[in-house]
């Protein structure tokens, strides 16, 4: 199967005050094909978010190559992309859609779908600063679902809101994840990995320590965490 995104010996270094060549990770080889649902796990600071940003063309790798299949779109599923608290939910939803690359016409049509998904009633036309945390999460997730990219990168976005909303978000995401699309999910939630993903990758010590069945990789991660606790 042709890879939508392929990383070859990708390496990332950051400039810090104490180290001008601080290594985040190196030698990452990863291929993502249509229909795949990959969990990216690892401890804080292991470079998971940075790796997503390399895949999303936000960062260029310090070394190595990233190949994107022709015409493929890759982007992060972000809650509250460009949201301004002074604007209404409707305005913010429209802005978010435009940032995701929808045309004005498509964005306007999507706003009504977002309103239906959020279920926040008349608050949709009120400034976001008046929203509760849960209402913001609903609006943010509803807007993020308008992301039409083929490869969706999720950085712990699903851990927001109450239990009811998390379940609704998971179902909505399942519906969106057709076999033509792929997902990479960064999470610390074991249940999310087991329910949503078919493959898991463990980042540890700046390298890709494991890649395979989610259950096995999670066990390896748990053993690693226990040994270093």
């Amino acid at each position: 199967m042709t890879a939508l995104v392929a990383l070859e010996a990708v390496c990332m270094r950051f400039v810090t005050k104490s180290n001008p060549e601080y290594p985040v990770f190196g030698g990452i080889n990863l291929s993502i094909s249509a229909g795949e649902r990959i969990a990216l796990i690892g401890r804080n600071g292991s470079g998971k978010s940075t790796l997503l940003r390399v895949m999303a063309r936000i960062f260029a790798p310090s070394a190595g190559n990233v190949h994107w299949a022709p015409g493929v779109s890759v982007s992060m599923l972000s809650l509250g992309l460009g949201f301004r608290p002074d604007l209404t939910g409707r305005d913010n939803a429209l802005l978010s859609c435009l940032l995701l690359g929808l045309s004005r016409k498509e964005a306007k049509a999507s706003v009504e779908r977002i309103a239906a998904f959020c279920e926040i009633g008349a608050f949709f036309d009120e400034p976001v600063r008046t929203y509760s945390v849960g209402m913001r999460a609903r609006l943010g997730f509803g807007s993020a679902l308008m992301n039409r990219s083929q490869v969706i990168l999720i950085d712990e976005t699903l851990s927001v809101g109450d239990t009811f909303f998390r379940e609704k978000a998971r179902e909505a995401l399942e519906k969106e994840l057709t076999e033509e699309r792929a997902m990479v999910l960064v999470t610390h939630g074991e249940q999310q990995v087991k329910r949503l993903c078919r493959r898991a990758v463990l980042l540890e010590g700046g390298t890709m320590m494991a890649d395979g069945d989610p259950g096995e990789v999670l066990a390896q991660y748990a053993a690693l965490s226990a040994s270093q606790a």
């Binding site: 063309r57 015409g71 460009g82 039409r148 990219s149």
Partner: peptide, 28 residues
């Protein structure tokens, strides 16, 4: 499924710049 390059077209950039400006002014 319709695929999209992550890079916006020129007209999308113009629309986005204008919408960001108008919404910012409105919020301000």
């Amino acid at each position: 499924m319709k695929t999209r390059e992550s890079v916006l077209t020129f007209s999308q950039i113009i629309t986005l710049v204008d919408t960001l400006a108008r919404f910012h002014l409105k919020g301000e």
